[in-house]
Amino acid sequence: MTQPEKELPPALFMDLDHSGPVPLYHQVATRIERAIVDGELPAGARLENEIALGERLGLSRPTIRRAIQDLVDKGLLVRRRGIGTQVVHGPVTRKVELTSLYDDLAGSGQHPSTRLLLHEVIEADARLGEILGVEPGAPILHLRRLRSADDVPVAVLENYLPTDFTTIGEGDLAEHGLYQVMRSRGTTMRVARQRIGARRAEPDESALLEIDDGGPVLTMDRTAYDNSGRAVEYGHHCYRPDLYSFEITLVDK
């Protein structure tokens, strides 16, 4: 459910200095950020539009737009197509570890939700058969999901699982992450090989993630293996770069 627009209290901007050395856009951004950090603007709150806010404060639309963009760049606000500007918890920083996005979001205090876009049993082609260690033509499970955090879309997840996971039902994935479901079936993910990249979003990805058409997305390809060395999952995912990043620790040998 879309939240109504929240009008920022005039007292928040009472001390704006129109003649000082600090740019007005920075002063506005700082005060909105303080309202977010203090909880006056909770996650999910929608800000009034730039024109209305500018008119109330006696500031130009470019000034307001620059202030809002600064907070978007910090991951505190997000622009959502057809909805407006909305407060988020902040960007998800994912350590490159063998965890699922669902686990990462829940662990960071956000509330993950899933929209199942595709759930089908298909025949493995030569490429997927090689990745998953099954014969071409063997039945495999193909999933495509939209993962959101506090109702803000973060990632489009596409997964392929070998034959013994084709019984995973749509209901299993509505309330739980894929790795949770797999662990509940006795699977222990032990190691994964993954590649991180970037590209332009496909048209349907732009719409699902509520970003500009052809905007940039982060990508991750991952093959996960269980404790016997068998491939149990292959995933190709794309993420909003303004809300998501990967964190890697480097060690000098």
Rank of each mutant, 00 (worst) to 15 (best):
P4E: 07
L12V: 14
M14E: 08
D17A: 03
S19Y: 09
Y25P: 00
A35R: 06
G39P: 10
G44R: 05
I51Y: 05
A52I: 03
E55L: 07
R56M: 01
R56Y: 03
G58E: 04
I64Y: 03
R65A: 13
D70S: 12
R80K: 14
R81L: 08
Q86K: 06
H89F: 07
G90H: 00
P91Y: 07
S108M: 11
H111D: 07
R115K: 15
L118H: 14
H119D: 09
H119Y: 10
E120W: 01
D125W: 08
D125F: 06
G133Q: 03
E135K: 12
A138C: 05
I140E: 01
L141N: 08
H142L: 11
A149P: 04
A149Q: 09
E158N: 12
N159T: 04
L161D: 05
L161V: 12
T163S: 12
D164S: 09
T166F: 04
T167W: 02
D172A: 13
Y179N: 12
Y179R: 11
V181K: 04
T188V: 15
A198W: 05
R199M: 10
R200Q: 15
P203S: 12
A207F: 02
G215S: 10
P216N: 09
P216I: 04
M220D: 00
R222W: 02
D226I: 09
V232P: 01
Y234T: 09
G235K: 01
H237T: 10
H237P: 00
S245M: 04
S245N: 11
I248K: 15
I248H: 13
T249E: 11
T249F: 03
